[in-house]
Amino acid sequence: MADNVKPRVRVPKTAKAGEVITIKTLISHQMESGQRKDQDGNVIPRSIINHFSVSFNGTPVLDVKMEPAISTNPYFEFEVAVPESGEFLFTWKDDDGSVYEDRQSIEIS
């Protein structure tokens, strides 16, 4: 696992049924592109998060195939129409096989 990988997710605590909410996610990760060279001129091998996905109560919301052009500390913002109370699951997949997850609940009032 890459060092110090920490996800941050912002989901409103409550919403009305069917309301469209904005979700923001950020995860600390170097996103080493595979294009840089170290001081000795050797290429630093690629090491990125290559996949991000979001589901709500098991239903897919968003899926992102990520390439080395995504900046260090990847950020995503998107919108979701929330049908019912439940739980979001956020998943990031690392080149090295690590999987980082975060869960957030939302109440429908």
Partner: peptide, 23 residues
Amino acid sequence: VPPVATFTFGELVGKHMASTRIR
């Protein structure tokens, strides 16, 4: 490396939009 990202939207998505930060 020209590809940046591919976004696939599920049925619960509000608007079919996404923002990110790129190199």
